[in-house]
Simulated scan of single mutants.
Amino acid sequence: MSKVCASAADAVSDVADGSTLAVGGFGLCGIPSDLIGALAERGVGGLEVYSNNCGVDDFGLGILLSARRIRRVTASYVGENKEFARQYLSGELEVELTPQGTLAERLRAGGAGIPAFFTPAGVGTPISEGGLPWRYNADGSVAIASPPKETRVIRGRTYVLEESIVADYALVHAEIGDTEGNLVFNKTAMNFNPLAAMAGRVTIAQVEKLVEPGEIDPAQVHVPGVFVQRVVHTGQQDKRIEKRTVSA
């Protein structure tokens, strides 16, 4: 059965206010910009986002953030977005910072049906002990702080329990996809895209090149179609440069 949607707008047409989203990409590499743009045009809000970062001020998830459509973000790096910092520090945005590898494994575990796992990352820090500011009050005081997490000693080493992530929707960007949802990512666009794709109850993939079933070598498939519910052909994407450096 074909999983192809006519447009990005059709693909995200049932994303409702308050939905949770796992979004692929790393910096500005491999982000599902067309799907994000379609969500911005729809006007849905109160979104909770799981993503490595939140784009920049005028691109990627930064578009939804600037429009005040995002309520909460779970991420590992947020240093390229001034509006993100402003909203967080002024108490307008809830933020859960998590180690990058932990975020990756939380997404993968969610897709694999694993409810939680133990990891040494964050042991002995506010990650495990609690107290990280999730949300500030307008006066700068902490409104919501992270709770302490369960720890356990296994074979003489202490580990912290991290819960997996399963999102209502996953938005990902692939270089090639077929009509059954099998996906191939281009080089570093592998980043968080396969993990986000696994973690979505409904996974929506925008693809630069759409092909028929059988045209992708099975050995080259990065995410099998069983994880993908919708595919939209968006064509070649704008390859933004996160930080342009030039010589004098």
Rank of each mutant, 00 (worst) to 15 (best):
121 A>Q: 09
104 A>W: 05
122 G>H: 01
93 L>R: 13
120 P>W: 15
124 G>A: 06
105 E>V: 08
122 G>M: 03
112 A>P: 00
108 R>N: 13
101 G>A: 09
92 E>H: 14
106 R>N: 02
109 A>F: 02
91 G>E: 07
116 A>I: 02
103 L>E: 03
108 R>I: 13
101 G>C: 02
108 R>V: 14
103 L>I: 04
105 E>W: 11
124 G>V: 07
100 Q>M: 04
114 I>A: 05
95 V>F: 03
103 L>P: 00
120 P>V: 14
98 T>W: 00
106 R>A: 14
103 L>Q: 03
101 G>N: 13
91 G>S: 07
118 F>D: 11
116 A>R: 09
102 T>Y: 02
120 P>L: 14
109 A>T: 01
117 F>L: 11
97 L>N: 02
106 R>H: 03
93 L>F: 08
105 E>P: 00
115 P>E: 13
119 T>R: 11
97 L>A: 08
91 G>F: 07
98 T>Y: 01
116 A>V: 02
117 F>C: 06
117 F>Y: 15
107 L>S: 08
105 E>H: 10
116 A>Y: 13
116 A>H: 09
98 T>L: 09
108 R>W: 07
118 F>K: 05
111 G>M: 11
100 Q>D: 14
119 T>D: 10
103 L>H: 04
91 G>D: 05
99 P>C: 07
115 P>W: 07
98 T>M: 06
100 Q>W: 00
123 V>R: 10
102 T>I: 15
120 P>Y: 15
110 G>R: 10
108 R>G: 07
93 L>W: 10
103 L>V: 01
105 E>D: 04
107 L>R: 04
121 A>M: 06
95 V>A: 03
114 I>W: 01
122 G>C: 05
120 P>A: 15
117 F>G: 01
107 L>P: 00
110 G>C: 09
91 G>K: 12
96 E>F: 11
97 L>W: 00
94 E>S: 15
122 G>Q: 04
110 G>Q: 10
94 E>Q: 14
111 G>F: 12
117 F>W: 08
111 G>E: 03
105 E>L: 10
114 I>D: 06
101 G>K: 03
116 A>N: 05
110 G>A: 11
104 A>D: 01
110 G>K: 10
115 P>L: 11
96 E>R: 15
121 A>K: 12
110 G>H: 04
123 V>F: 02
92 E>V: 12
91 G>V: 06
112 A>T: 04
97 L>M: 14
90 S>L: 12
